[in-house]
Design a protein around this nucleic acid. Sequence first.
DNA 1: ATTGAAACACGACACAT
DNA 2: ATGTGTCGTGTTTCAAT
Lengths: 139, 139
Amino acid sequence: MDEKDIVLVNELIENSRAPLTHLAKKLGMTDVAIKKRLKKLEKEGVIRKYTIEVDPTKLGFKHVALIGIDTEPEKILDVSTQLASKEYAYKVYLTTGDHMLMLEAWAKDNKHLTQIIEDIGKIPGVKRVCPAIILEKLK
Amino acid sequence: MDEKDIVLVNELIENSRAPLTHLAKKLGMTDVAIKKRLKKLEKEGVIRKYTIEVDPTKLGFKHVALIGIDTEPEKILDVSTQLASKEYAYKVYLTTGDHMLMLEAWAKDNKHLTQIIEDIGKIPGVKRVCPAIILEKLK
DNA sequence: ATTGAAACACGACACAT
DNA sequence: ATGTGTCGTGTTTCAAT
């Protein structure tokens, strides 16, 4: 990881479909050198995956919610693996703080969100479900 | 937005550098047709950007924190725009729930995180800062 | 650095709604 | 008329020598 790698990563964060030759120009090297750096960054796990950022509302999801979940301490891993397998789970985090588990969920509408919250509540070991709807994404 | 678009978006979420021809095979059409769909999805804002998912720890950030922030109600927009301009702010959300503002912050180390929390506390209108460190990302 | 193969961009045209 | 598809051509990009 040197300065060039940082620039490269930042370029890819902005546009992961940029051709190697474009990246090469920006960094002042050849496409082959860029390719090698990418391979290295992928292998090291710096780049987890090439992906897209989508607008959930445009995909028919009216609500995006951050849901804090409290569990019985010994059940936290069970609960988290179960959550991660749910189709409504977009992201699952183990955290310190108020809640030990945080979930980002995408819901089609109010009814769906209610279902999700109920579904989480039914997972054995879950003590409390604290949903917060994301009203706006500012960054 | 039809079934094909959904498949296409899901493929790109998994690998945004997939060549058009690969995507074309999966969807049973030509690369040109795929390209046209991509253009449409980009124009409609379904695809916000082609990006990469990086591992913050590999970039030298030891901590990723989800920070809930309480503000005086009339200051919430001021605070949120200020937060969005901070270099440590990776994501900023306006939410319902416990805290009206949620921030995802990347910190180089403990000291940096402390600084960030103090910095947030100093923004006029901020009443309470509730940090939660993300221990593990499960999905 | 060269080069052959693969992937991509663009235009013109066709078909359906 | 608009949206969506195929085909043909020339160019760019890739990956392996």
